Simulated scan of single mutants.
Amino acid sequence: MPLTNPWLAGPTPTRKLDRERLEERIHNLLSSQNMCVLATAGPDGPLATPVRYYPLDFTLMFTAAPRSPKMRNIAADPRVSVGVFAPLVGLASSRGAQVFGAARVLSPDHPEHAHHWSAFRWQNEHAERGRPLSEPPEETLVLVEAQRIVYTEHWLRRDGYAPRQHWRR
Rank of each mutant, 00 (worst) to 15 (best):
T12F: 01
G42C: 02
W167R: 00
D77C: 11
R25S: 14
H116E: 11
W122P: 03
Y151D: 10
G130D: 01
V150K: 14
L143A: 00
I149D: 09
E24T: 11
E139S: 05
I26T: 10
R168H: 09
P13D: 05
G96Y: 08
R157G: 01
N28D: 15
T49C: 04
F62M: 08
A119K: 12
A162P: 02
K16P: 03
M61L: 15
T49D: 05
V105F: 02
L47G: 10
T59S: 12
M61G: 09
G96M: 10
L56T: 14
A97P: 08
E153M: 01
E139H: 06
M71K: 08
T14Y: 00
L56D: 15
L29R: 06
N28F: 12
R67N: 10
L30D: 11
V80E: 08
H166A: 03
D57Y: 12
R129G: 01
W117V: 00
P108F: 10
M61S: 10
D44S: 15
Q165Y: 09
E135H: 07
V51M: 15
Y161M: 03
F85Y: 14
K16R: 14
R52A: 15
L8Q: 01
Q123T: 11
I74Q: 03
G42Q: 11
R104M: 14
E138I: 00
A103S: 04
A119E: 06
P13G: 06
H126E: 05
H126P: 00
M35K: 05
P136N: 06
E128A: 13
S31A: 12
G101A: 08
C36F: 10
P78F: 07
G45L: 04
F85P: 00
V82R: 10
E112C: 02
P50E: 07
R25Q: 13
L143I: 02
D109L: 04
E135Y: 04
R19D: 10
E128H: 13
S107I: 03
V89T: 13
H116T: 01
H110F: 01
R121P: 07
S134I: 01
A103M: 06
H154L: 05
D159I: 02
P69C: 02
R21I: 02
E139P: 04
E145I: 01
M71L: 09
Y54S: 15
P132D: 00
R164F: 09
H27M: 11
R67H: 15
A41Y: 13
R168Q: 12
A48C: 15
T14M: 04
V105E: 13
D44N: 13
A76D: 13
E153K: 03
S107T: 14
I149E: 11
E138V: 02
T14V: 02
M71Q: 06
V51F: 12
Q98D: 12
K16C: 05
S94P: 03
L29Y: 14
